[in-house]
Simulated assay, not measured.
Amino acid sequence: MPDDPLIAIKTGALYFALIFALGFVLGTIRVLWLAPMAGETLAVLTELPIMLTASWFGARGMVRRHKLKVMRDRAVMGAVALLLLFIVELLMAVLLFGQTLQAWLTGVITMPGPIGLAGQILFGLMPLLVPKPRSPNLPV
């Protein structure tokens, strides 16, 4: 159905909002409770499967609901969501936590940053990885 790029952009923004909300809650638990007990890397490794599972179901639901059958639309959805994630994370780091751009980038490339970055990239790719919605006229 949608060959309208705006639908893919809006769907990417919705996908971002859904997963970011969960990530905000889990990230708070990770930073305040889990990381002090288990260490940063183990805390990120504990959170990652939950976030990727949520990303799978979120992307699948959005792709089906908005009937994004064309891979280009699904790629746009994932790219928009990933771009929004990077922008919001950078803004939060700078405005809420007083980090510099350099400190934020250093956090991305030093452990456990690469683990989180890999998860974020998978989040952005998830709309391409979930099954294509079936046509309602085709037999199951």
Rank of each mutant, 00 (worst) to 15 (best):
residue 35 A to Q: 12
residue 79 A to S: 15
residue 114 P to I: 08
residue 8 A to I: 01
residue 29 I to V: 15
residue 132 K to G: 06
residue 11 T to R: 07
residue 25 V to A: 09
residue 79 A to H: 11
residue 78 G to I: 03
residue 56 W to K: 07
residue 37 M to C: 14
residue 119 G to S: 04
residue 125 L to K: 09
residue 134 R to F: 06
residue 19 I to G: 04
residue 40 E to K: 12
residue 132 K to T: 15
residue 136 P to D: 10
residue 9 I to A: 04
residue 38 A to W: 08
residue 66 H to Q: 11
residue 42 L to T: 11
residue 110 T to L: 10
residue 89 E to T: 06
residue 118 A to Q: 10
residue 92 M to C: 09
residue 48 L to C: 09
residue 101 L to I: 08
residue 31 V to W: 12
residue 136 P to L: 07
residue 55 S to P: 03
residue 88 V to W: 12
residue 30 R to I: 03
residue 85 L to G: 08
residue 115 I to C: 05
residue 74 R to I: 04
residue 24 F to P: 00
residue 31 V to Y: 15
residue 118 A to M: 14
residue 8 A to R: 00
residue 81 A to Y: 09
residue 13 A to M: 05
residue 39 G to H: 05
residue 58 G to P: 09
residue 101 L to P: 00
residue 117 L to K: 06
residue 73 D to A: 09
residue 61 G to Y: 11
residue 67 K to P: 00
residue 39 G to Q: 11
residue 109 I to A: 03
residue 89 E to Q: 12
residue 28 T to F: 13
residue 30 R to D: 07
residue 28 T to N: 08
residue 37 M to G: 14
residue 11 T to E: 06
residue 7 I to L: 10
residue 89 E to G: 09
residue 37 M to R: 15
residue 9 I to H: 00
residue 13 A to F: 03
residue 35 A to P: 03
residue 135 S to G: 13
residue 44 V to D: 03
residue 78 G to N: 02
residue 102 Q to A: 12
residue 25 V to Q: 01
residue 38 A to Q: 10
residue 93 A to Q: 00
residue 58 G to C: 08
residue 41 T to I: 11
residue 89 E to L: 08
residue 47 E to Y: 08
residue 61 G to C: 06
residue 85 L to W: 10
residue 12 G to N: 04
residue 15 Y to K: 01
residue 14 L to Q: 14
residue 22 L to Q: 05
residue 14 L to I: 15
residue 4 D to Y: 11
residue 3 D to Q: 10
residue 122 L to R: 05
residue 124 G to N: 03
residue 68 L to V: 01
residue 36 P to H: 09
residue 13 A to S: 06
residue 27 G to P: 08
residue 12 G to W: 02
residue 112 P to G: 03
residue 100 T to N: 00
residue 127 P to G: 11
residue 123 F to D: 08
residue 116 G to A: 14
residue 1 M to C: 08
residue 41 T to G: 07
residue 120 Q to G: 12
residue 22 L to D: 05
residue 77 M to I: 00
residue 81 A to L: 10
residue 69 K to P: 02
residue 33 W to Q: 13
residue 14 L to Y: 11
residue 77 M to E: 01
residue 77 M to G: 00
residue 133 P to H: 05
residue 83 L to Q: 01
residue 76 V to R: 01
residue 68 L to T: 00
residue 15 Y to W: 06
residue 49 P to R: 06
residue 108 V to G: 08
residue 56 W to D: 07
residue 102 Q to T: 07
residue 86 F to T: 09
residue 39 G to P: 07
residue 131 P to E: 12
residue 135 S to L: 14
residue 61 G to H: 10
residue 38 A to L: 13
residue 78 G to C: 02
